[in-house]
Write a protein that binds this DNA or RNA. Sequence first.
DNA 1: ATAGACCCTCCAATGATGGGAGGGTCAAGC
DNA 2: GCTTGACCCTCCCATCATTGGAGGGTCTAT
Lengths: 144, 144
Amino acid sequence: MNMGPMTIGEAAKASGVSVKMIRYYDEVGLVRPASRSEGNYREYDTRAVNELRFIKRARALGFDMAEIAQLLSLWRDRERPSREVKAIAQRHLADLDTRIREMQAMADTLRHLAHCCAGDDRPDCPILADLGGADLGRADHTTL
Amino acid sequence: MNMGPMTIGEAAKASGVSVKMIRYYDEVGLVRPASRSEGNYREYDTRAVNELRFIKRARALGFDMAEIAQLLSLWRDRERPSREVKAIAQRHLADLDTRIREMQAMADTLRHLAHCCAGDDRPDCPILADLGGADLGRADHTTL
DNA sequence: ATAGACCCTCCAATGATGGGAGGGTCAAGC
DNA sequence: GCTTGACCCTCCCATCATTGGAGGGTCTAT
């Protein structure tokens, strides 16, 4: 296997990150190519490809670019205190949990409304009634 | 209470939707003002304000604008079959459930990793190890 | 030399929302 | 009547990560 510099397309295949996104990460300074060729092509080495994979995995865990920038710089720093990594992870985790709870509240309400809806030819519909601000039997399931 | 046409600011207060968003809903054709004043001010009646509230509630349940456009047109149609409303709600519900499951998988993985991280001065960190593609003890918690 | 696959940069759009600039309208008080 | 301040108008821009395309240059194999 050729371990020399890769083109952006090769780095994309090796990392699973799209060519477009690799260019974007370069542009925002997250992962810069090791060098440029004579013809101005980006050249990536295995280290850069590992960083791209790192980003891909971090994105899959829901981290945003700002968090990934921090994680990446900690990853590059062999002296990092794991405390800092854990803090970022826990902050993100709390964020995830909040969003999950919000979406679950939506889903629960919606499930209840859909369950109460006949879903036939008739126009009467508790879903629309709720959205329209029905005053009947509220205060329980509608509280988000 | 004055039931005549309201200005956009009054409609915003009455509906809980921001002035900016009311203008946006007008622009995209979701809720158009009942009329325009001499001075080109948008004028909203109670019906429009009810529709704004409808949108607000639907947004709180996570519906996107395309879904809301459909729900709104069903709401306006007294002949609608509740089946159609229910179908939209159930599609959205399935979507929500999928997203919730995805986020829960992220959160579970992250919780596990954070739990395994000492979070002290030392650089060793299972979180970074996982992001970096560690080959040790995978295949269980890392499967998204 | 030419075809085809690849690469480059720049621009635009996504969805819902907020922010602001620059300017017009209206009502109250003088 | 005129000023002031609150309100309104229409544009434009930014967000966040990602994708798409246009227009054009580079490389490789035939």
